[in-house]
Design a protein around this nucleic acid. Structure first.
Lengths: 125, 125
DNA sequence: CCAATAAAGCAACTTTGTTGCAATTAAAAA
DNA sequence: TTTTTAATTGCAACAAAGTTGCTTTATTGG
């Protein structure tokens, strides 16, 4: 951990995560940064940030990848198995700080869980 | 419901869901049926089957779509919000018949939940 | 059987993401 | 500080998953 070098690209990308708590899709990041850097760079910086536990990623309903800042993850352990929520109106995706109880299942060793919720957010309801 | 015509393609596709309880990825279906029908047909048949509540779909970790037979869904309501499980060894995906408690979240109206679990299945553990 | 409608095939395209390699840039060593 | 080394970036080409438009082929209802 702490291996990610704070290059211009890294700083710029991280700045986009600052304003709110929303997650951002890779596609959105690529298009926002289109004029400033190559999409390959965006994808590679995201990879590095994720490996280093600075952001985490998850797959959205439409098969595109979303990224959000980790609050308590390291490169060794992404310990917040929190649900992600997408508003069906404004399409915004947020991390929810709620505990999810992962059910025990006979004959299965569960190592990881992803919970993706959809509905209406406060603004749109 | 009951609108899906039982064409050759539909029957063939449905036959692939019979043997087990596993889910099948669209990619896998396309490649299995490669010699028999066009991939466009596969995708369109799956769409129809899903709209009619005969199968349900969900997004896998790698952004590819998986399909499984519904046990109690109709075109109006997919009522089994069951988790899906993928073995990290054999890559097989199955529907789990377990209840998942969806947390209530303040300021959010939750309409749908997807739970995706990964780990080791009985065979691979 | 025949017209109307739905399904299937085909090719071309879109979107999301990846790879190989050369050119830069930044960090470490001297 | 200069040199050396290693990591990062850009670019173009590619790949996989899925979609679209349009034509052809089946189905079905009269």
């Amino acid at each position: 951990m702490g291996v990610v070098r704070k290059t211009k690209a890294v700083k710029r990308l991280l700045s986009l995560f600052e304003p709110g708590v929303s997650a951002i899709s890779a596609v959105d990041l690529v298009s926002q940064l289109n004029a400033e850097m190559n999409k390959t760079t965006v994808y590679r910086v995201l990879d590095r940030l994720e490996n280093d536990g600075i952001v985490h990623s998850f797959m959205g309903k439409e098969g595109i990848k979303w990224y959000a800042k980790c609050t308590s993850c390291s490169s060794h352990h992404h310990n917040d198995i929190h649900p992600h929520f997408q508003c069906t109106d404004c399409k915004k995706v947020t991390c929810l700080s709620v505990e999810v109880s992962i059910p025990k299942v006979e004959n299965h060793t569960i190592e990881n869980a992803t919970v993706f919720l959809t509905g209406k957010c406060g603004n749109c309801a």
